[in-house]
Every structure is written in C-alpha cells, then in structure tokens.
C-alpha cells in the first residue's frame, strides 16, 4: 500500500506506523520546532516525546510513531499547526 507524504507517494507496509514508513523511506526529520526551527523526527518512537508530529488526512498534531499507516493516507509534514 501507499501513503502520500507532502504530495509524494511513499510505500508502506501493513502494520507499519506512519513514522516507520517515513523512516523506511529514508526520512530522519520531518518537522521543525517553533522557536529555534530545529529539525525533529523520531526520538522515543513510542508516543512519549511528541517530536514526530504530522498532519494526517487534515488532522494536525498526530504522533507518527503511534498512527498505523492506512492505504491512501495523506500526510503533511512541517510545523505543528
């Protein structure tokens, strides 16, 4: 199955999280912080740190490391909101 990340098609496997799909695609950072514009991606990987936030199908501030990828998911990276 595939998801769309900022308009680009990215493959995902059944049971993978959005973060795992991004990681498998070679992405290591997909967000910048509000104050210092520091790049952030996966850190804790288990839903604790909130570094890996993405927008999925229009809903903002979702932890990519928790959300299972579903075929056709539209993911937007970047800021928090």
């Amino acid at each position: 199955m595939n998801i769309t990340v900022d308009g680009r098609t990215v493959p995902a496997e059944e049971g993978q999280t959005i973060a795992a799909a991004l990681h498998a695609d070679g992405l290591r950072a997909w967000r910048t912080t509000r104050v210092g514009a520091r790049p952030r991606g996966l850190f804790c990987g288990i839903g604790v740190c909130f570094d890996c936030l993405v927008t999925i199908n229009g809903r903002a501030s979702i932890r990519a490391c928790l959300a299972p990828a579903r075929d056709g998911d539209v993911v937007t990276t970047g800021g928090e909101r």
């Binding site: 290591r28 950072a29 790049p39 996966l42 990987g45």
Partner: peptide, 8 residues
C-alpha cells in the same frame, strides 16, 4: 535527528 532513545 538520528539520536533515538534505546527503546525507540
């Protein structure tokens, strides 16, 4: 980015 927790 690239620094992960051990559990991560």
């Amino acid at each position: 980015p690239g620094v992960l927790t051990a559990g991560g």
